[in-house]
């Protein structure tokens, strides 16, 4: 990856922004400023504009800026709170907050629901679930017959769609996810508990001239 001299970008987020984010998320001020180190690294990896573009997000996730993935696209879209096609630092912090180990499970369940509600209709439809199953099978180079895929979708709807109306609504999802906590394991990132350890560069010269 090309490297960029520190002169070309701000070394720390504007103080008021960092303080507000620290006040409104589970991150401390120190952790917000450490997240800024990570954000800079990702947001300058391809386009030198301090914003995370989808290619940069894909590069950070997969080491491949061109690799398409339905679920990474959904995460990117949910992080892009202003829906302007890029992830800004504030959006990055507020979204990663959901993945903090100390963030309440209800917030993680709600985020996961929005993630899987591909078309944003307010419920997870059969077709959406089938599309996601086909996407993960394709990603894993797994071949299953259409019947087998239908069976998996049927089986899941039987468990989750309590009122059998053909879609999973937020309450049904909450009930289902609470009974199957393993489904939410990737909604928590232990890294976030010691983010300042992962990005010590902030701590070493914090405030000192370079």
């Amino acid at each position: 990856m090309g490297c960029v001299s520190s002169k070309q970008f701000r070394r720390a987020p504007p103080h008021e922004d960092a303080a507000l984010l620290a006040k409104e998320t589970t991150f401390s001020l120190n952790e917000v400023e450490a997240l800024y180190e990570l954000f800079k690294k990702i947001s300058y990896s391809i386009f030198k504009d301090g914003l995370i573009h989808k290619e940069e997000f894909q590069l950070a996730l997969f080491r491949n800026s061109n690799r398409k993935n339905l679920f990474a696209d959904r995460i990117f879209d949910l992080f892009d709170l202003k829906r302007n096609g890029v992830i800004e630092f504030e959006e990055f912090v507020r979204s990663l907050h959901i993945f903090h180990p100390d963030t309440p499970m209800a917030d993680k369940i709600a985020f996961a629901f929005r993630l899987y509600d591909l078309r944003g209709t307010g419920s997870i439809e059969r077709e959406e679930l089938k599309e996601m199953v086909l996407a993960i099978l394709n990603e894993s180079d797994l071949l299953l017959s259409d019947d087998a895929v239908e069976q998996i979708v049927d089986q899941t709807f039987k468990q989750a769609d309590l009122n059998s109306d053909g879609r999973i609504d937020p309450d049904e999802w909450k009930e289902f996810a609470s009974k199957n906590p393993a489904l939410l394991k990737n909604m928590t990132l232990p890294y976030l508990k010691d983010i300042t350890m992962s990005f010590p560069s902030f701590v070493v010269y914090s405030g000192a001239g370079d």
Partner: peptide, 25 residues
Amino acid sequence: EPVALNAFELISMSAGLNLGNLFDS
């Protein structure tokens, strides 16, 4: 009798959902 597979368990294995990779970039 095949193990009853849950679609969301399958989906949760996607690399696209493993944001831990962001920290190793």
